[in-house]
Design a protein around this nucleic acid. Structure first.
Length: 505
RNA sequence: GGGCGCGUAGCUCAAUGGUAGAGCAGUGGCCUUUUAAGCCAUUGGUUCAGGGUUCGAGCCCCUGCGCGCUCACCA
């Protein structure tokens, strides 16, 4: 491994320490408190305790700031709870200790220090250190970053900002950019809140196959892999849908899964090849009830994770309190495009109408695809406030139940926030004969687009044949929800290790 | 996959086609309550890679690699 000058200097320090009998990588640490615990402990003592009481603590953390001043040294250490200052004074640690702290320790090293809590002249709660030792020496220096605290706000000067380095070396990014850690705390809290909400409604969380012999439940190209011994082709799942509805048939009448989906498609600010999805299915519910569940669930997440239902996203202030706006798809398109899709029951007719208005489209597309293009180009960007867009064309919704009395439309909705699609839900198609017909239609209408076609799933049809109760289903991109909650403009910022091209080292 | 932009010290950034610099980090020194500590001195470069034009290339041209934005794709 090639080493930089800075690294060579630190490697020499390691050698020197070893020669002096100091282990730069001891096996254990014995902290008595975390950084914030120690600070709170001291504050508590100041309020109610005896001010003469000495509170002894042993803390462990990473050195993030180092200010030697002659015969004293100030060092800030950090753990995941926050930062605390260590104060080293020759009077307490002796000449040898002073030499140690100044010569052996660098920014980025892990240190354990024991001493008593006190306030410095400037009022910062600190540890007056009596003894300390190396916990782990860092060879590679962390990207330089200095933090200035102004009115409680941490201003970082010249930190690590290059996005490629940040994603490829997420460990360095996390180590120096506390805001990044915060995003993943919100992410964890979001998933936890979703689980809590559904568990409280008596949903059962399950795990279904990721490696599937037949993929389905969405129109996407799958990743293909191979089972060596079985000599069988397998697909990484593109959705959970078909398995979860089998469970509804089996009597698990409230069921959900949170997990990874894989789609072999383009990467963009809102697409990653693998992403986290929440899907839920609720028997005896229809899509209206799922709308209510959705808005209540997201309000619950906001309350528990952010403590507010008002979020900032791309300069918009958005309130996620129920009820969300309900907008019929047909009406929304009339308002934004001037086209009434009900007057164009065929693809040819709709294409002509779009052509007349100079709207872009892919010639020869199915009617549903044309409608989808209109939504994406003209309607979706206008849906800033939380909105359920409902009643979708049948031919782009092969797993959704038809609307009574309207054979071209299904009971489906998508939820939009800040102009971004967040979730997709419908009254599930539970008529096995209709479902078979849909698979056949898909095969015919999308014949040319082989890779997007729904493969016929005979076993799924058999499950339907056993009888599935009326059911509402719902799917949501968890990454996109986290983007909204953390005001991040790209999915990569809410993934710890986003997909990047391989690079030759 | 197409278009546009970017790639310089560990980090953040400069540099009309003419000796590659700064701040921070590092190293040496001073400094017993600092907090972007301060002061003095100082080290550090395959300018993403390869080719070309030129007396001379970080800069201009070509190819490749990577990243970003965008379009396409993505029920």
């Amino acid at each position: 491994m090639e080493r930089t000058e800075l690294e060579k200097i630190r490697l020499e320090k390691i050698e020197r320490m070893r020669a002096e009998g100091i282990d730069p990588y001891p096996t254990t640490a014995h902290p008595t408190h975390r950084a914030m615990e120690a600070i709170h402990l001291f504050e508590e003592m100041e309020k109610t305790g005896d001010p003469e009481e000495k509170i002894e603590v042993t803390l462990a953390g990473r050195i993030r700031a180092n200010r030697p001043m002659g015969k004293i040294v100030f060092i800030h250490i950090e753990d995941s709870t926050g930062r605390i200052q260590l104060f080293f004074r020759v009077n307490n640690i002796g000449q040898d200790g002073l030499k140690r702290i100044k010569e052996d320790f660098d920014l980025g090293d892990f240190i354990e220090a024991t001493g008593t809590l006190f306030r410095t002249k400037t009022g910062e709660i600190s540890v007056l250190v009596d003894s300390f030792r190396m916990l782990a020496k860092a060879v590679t220096p962390l990207p330089a970053a200095k933090d200035e605290v102004v009115d409680g706000q941490v201003i970082r000067h010249a930190g690590l900002t290059d996005s490629e380095t940040r994603y490829r070396q997420r460990y360095a990014d996390l180590a120096v950019n506390p805001d990044v850690r915060k995003i993943f705390q919100v992410r964890a809290g979001t998933v936890r809140a979703l689980r809590e909400y559904l568990d409280n409604l008596d949903f059962l969380e399950v795990e279904t196959p990721i490696l599937q012999p037949i993929y389905g439940g969405a129109a996407a190209r799958p990743f293909v892999t191979q089972h060596n011994q079985l000599k069988q082709e397998l697909y990484l799942r593109i959705s959970f849908e078909l398995y979860l509805k089998r469970l509804i048939v089996g009597g698990i009448d409230r069921v959900y899964e949170i997990g990874r989906d894989f789609r072999n498609e383009g990467v963009s600010y809102k697409h990653n090849p693998e992403f986290t999805q929440l899907e839920l299915y609720m028997a005896y519910a229809d899509y209206h009830q799922i709308m209510e569940l959705t808005e209540n669930m997201l309000a619950y997440v906001c309350d528990n994770v952010l403590g507010t239902r008002t979020i900032q996203f791309r300069g918009n202030t958005i309130n996620l309190s129920p009820p969300w706006k309900r907008l019929e798809l047909r009406q929304g398109l009339i308002e934004t495009t001037g086209i009434d899709i009900n007057q164009h029951p065929t693809a040819d007719s709709l294409e002509a109408a779009m052509k007349a208005k100079n709207y872009p489209f892919k010639p020869g597309s199915a009617r549903g695809k044309l409608i989808d293009a209109l939504i994406g180009d003209y309607l979706e960007p206008t849906l800033l406030e939380p909105t359920f867009l409902y009643d979708y064309p049948r031919d782009i919704s092969p797993l959704a139940k038809s609307k009574p009395g309207d054979p071209t439309t299904v009971e489906r909705f998508e939820g939009f926030v800040a102009g971004m699609e967040l979730c997709n839900a419908f009254t599930e198609l539970n008529d096995p004969l209709d479902q078979e017909q849909r698979f056949i239609e898909m095969g015919r209408d999308y014949e040319s687009e082989d890779e997007e076609r729904h493969p016929m799933d005979e076993d799924y049809l058999r499950a339907m044949s056993y009888g599935m109760p009326p059911t509402g289903g719902f799917g949501m991109g968890v990454d996109r929800l986290v983007m909204l909650l953390t005001n991040q403009q790209t999915i990569r910022e809410v993934l710890l290790f986003p997909h990047l091209r391989k690079v030759e080292e």
